[in-house]
Simulated scan of single mutants.
Amino acid sequence: MERRPGGRSARVGDAVRQATLAELAEHGYQGLTVDNVAERSGVHKTTVYRRWGSTAGLIREALQQAEAEAWPVPDTGDVRGDLRALTRLVQEGFADPELGPVSTAFVAAAVQDQEAARALHAFYVSRHAQSAGLVRRAVARGELPEDVDPEEVIRFAVAPIFYRLFVTYEPVTAADAERAADAALAAARSGALGGTS
């Protein structure tokens, strides 16, 4: 008989992940501790230390789980609508009172810890690859040049949002997000975001 996935290990992992996200939402990366995650999750702290090792390990695990989750890539029927919907999704995610602090904490962790930085990089590589599907659809519809780099279009579209949030600490409105999408679209149509040979 084939062993079913899950069991106690999966329950422990899920409890610790949920506790990690809750702690990040409430206290940010600076306030994240293994002891607090252990207490919140109901998992003995020795187990948490043995399996995750540190707060960076907790961050890595949470990001790996998030990386595996499907990203709702917009499909409005045209590239401008898709890019605008995507940038608004990012902007709204950071503005969300529950999701925003967690996403911000992931970025803060990546700035301070190489393990967290590698996990965040892998997370965004996955997100950009998924989102690039909307660019490939646009190419197939003849809306963008065939040699456009789909992932680069996505990076170019969301970069201004991250710049405002984490470099200049400015608010990001829906209009800002749409302007970023429009700039990425103009760059893609001009050939500035073509693939490298």
Score class of each variant (00 low, 15 high):
residue 7 G to H: 09
residue 9 S to G: 11
residue 9 S to T: 14
residue 9 S to K: 09
residue 10 A to Q: 11
residue 14 D to N: 11
residue 20 T to K: 09
residue 21 L to W: 05
residue 21 L to A: 10
residue 22 A to L: 12
residue 22 A to C: 05
residue 27 H to T: 09
residue 27 H to A: 13
residue 29 Y to M: 04
residue 29 Y to S: 03
residue 29 Y to G: 02
residue 29 Y to T: 01
residue 34 V to T: 13
residue 38 A to G: 08
residue 43 V to W: 12
residue 46 T to G: 15
residue 48 V to D: 01
residue 49 Y to I: 03
residue 50 R to P: 01
residue 51 R to P: 00
residue 53 G to D: 10
residue 53 G to Y: 13
residue 55 T to S: 12
residue 56 A to M: 08
residue 58 L to I: 06
residue 60 R to Y: 04
residue 70 A to G: 01
residue 72 P to R: 01
residue 75 D to W: 04
residue 77 G to A: 05
residue 79 V to C: 14
residue 85 A to M: 06
residue 86 L to W: 15
residue 91 Q to M: 14
residue 93 G to C: 05
residue 95 A to T: 09
residue 97 P to C: 11
residue 97 P to E: 12
residue 100 G to H: 03
residue 101 P to K: 02
residue 103 S to K: 03
residue 112 Q to R: 15
residue 115 E to C: 09
residue 115 E to K: 02
residue 119 A to V: 11
residue 123 F to T: 06
residue 123 F to G: 00
residue 127 R to K: 14
residue 128 H to G: 04
residue 129 A to Y: 04
residue 130 Q to K: 13
residue 131 S to E: 15
residue 136 R to K: 13
residue 143 E to C: 08
residue 145 P to G: 03
residue 146 E to Y: 04
residue 157 A to M: 05
residue 158 V to P: 05
residue 162 F to S: 13
residue 162 F to I: 05
residue 166 F to T: 06
residue 171 P to F: 02
residue 171 P to W: 01
residue 175 A to C: 04
residue 176 D to A: 02
residue 178 E to Q: 11
residue 178 E to W: 12
residue 179 R to S: 12
residue 182 D to K: 01
residue 184 A to Y: 07
residue 184 A to M: 09
residue 189 R to M: 01
residue 189 R to C: 00
residue 194 G to A: 15
residue 195 G to L: 13
